[in-house]
């Protein structure tokens, strides 16, 4: 648990934090080495042309800093978010970027202070236009991810330095369990006098007529087609297209360790996806929450949300970016 720092210390830290961070790129490192070499050569030989070249190289460094700073000014960023984020697979994430005035070039956006990996980029951002930047991000694991800010980086104009500005923007992204293959069977569907699922006729099908076959022992006599049986001299039963909609209740047991819990969540998510795709109703029973069975994509989203929060403390507002 984090210790609560005094507010004055937070203020001091925020004041000491540089407004921009600068990182030398690979080509920039070589550029600096060459500049250093030219400087040594100029000092050694007194060759004025080397001094001129050195002046040009150093000026380009300064101009690079000024132009990149102009690029990062007057920017505003809004987090649009993702439709659905699954762990360990790329998901589309969006930011809306706009600029008060002037142009910006070669901006790269990413989330700062979070385990999300991946960047989105925009080549040219004119003034007064909101540009939606899309990125394929990847989250390492399931659960809520606290997003503290958006990092905007530019290598404009020469690619020698990567200057970064961080926009503080707090939000939470809920990452669903990894989509994997469900190895285990979901188990028997629920039976009982509840709705269609409790009707035994439902198991024999109640759709359109699909054929006739001889009645097997123990089968429901109400399915016999008496006229055809009379003409055939044996008991024939009607076969109808069956409605496959069943009700399943998936469970996540209590007391699982972290790894087992993760594996179970992924399995349940996969099962739920498969069953809902097949048209079944799926419910979820976890130590923290119980979700009533239902069908459809909305139910799948509800299941995923419950699975994503499993094992994590859920805030009161339940705010999330996704």
């Amino acid at each position: 648990m984090k210790s609560r720092l005094p507010s004055w210390w937070a203020r001091v830290r925020s004041r000491l934090r540089p407004p921009r961070t600068l990182k030398v790129t690979r080509i920039g490192r070589t550029y600096l080495v060459v500049t250093f070499g030219v400087g040594l050569g100029a000092l050694n030989t007194g060759n004025n042309l080397l001094y001129l070249l050195l002046g040009l190289l150093l000026s380009m460094v300064v101009v690079s800093g000024v132009l990149s700073e102009r690029c990062l000014r007057y920017l505003s960023v809004r987090r649009v978010g993702a439709d659905a984020a699954f762990a360990q697979e790329p998901f589309a994430f969006r930011w809306a970027l706009s600029r008060g005035h002037g142009h910006a070039f070669a901006l790269t956006l990413s989330e700062t202070g979070s385990p999300l990996t991946g960047t989105g980029g925009v080549g040219y951002l004119p003034a007064g236009v909101e540009h939606v930047v899309r990125a394929d991000l990847t989250a390492p694991q399931r659960g809520p991810v606290l997003l503290t800010g958006v990092r905007v980086t530019t290598t404009w104009p020469l690619g020698l330095f990567a200057k970064t500005r961080t926009f503080p923007l707090e939000s939470t992204l809920l990452v669903y369990p990894r989509r994997t293959y469900a190895c285990q069977d979901p188990g028997a569907p629920e039976q009982g006098p509840v709705g269609d699922a409790g009707n035994p006729r439902r198991n024999d099908g109640n759709g359109d007529l699909s054929g006739l076959r001889e009645l097997a022992p123990g089968e429901d006599a109400r399915r016999i087609h008496w006229m055809k049986s009379a003409s055939a001299g044996k008991l024939l039963r009607v076969e109808r297209e069956r409605e496959e909609r069943r009700t399943f209740m998936l469970t996540v047991a209590d007391g699982l360790d972290a790894e087992a819990l993760e594996r179970r969540c992924e399995e349940v998510a996969a099962l739920a996806h498969r069953l809902i795709e097949e048209g079944h109703e799926v419910g979820l029973d976890t130590p923290e929450e119980r979700l009533r069975p239902a069908a459809g994509t909305a139910q799948e989203r509800r299941l995923l949300r419950v699975l994503a929060w499993l094992g994590h403390a859920r805030p009161r507002g339940d705010e999330e970016a996704a």
């Binding site: 070039f105 070669a106 901006l107 980029g121 080549g123 290598t155 104009p157 690619g159």
Partner: peptide, 11 residues
């Protein structure tokens, strides 16, 4: 160089 930097950021 500048065109290269912009080009790398353009989808």
């Amino acid at each position: 160089l500048a065109l290269g930097v912009v080009e790398s950021a353009v989808p």
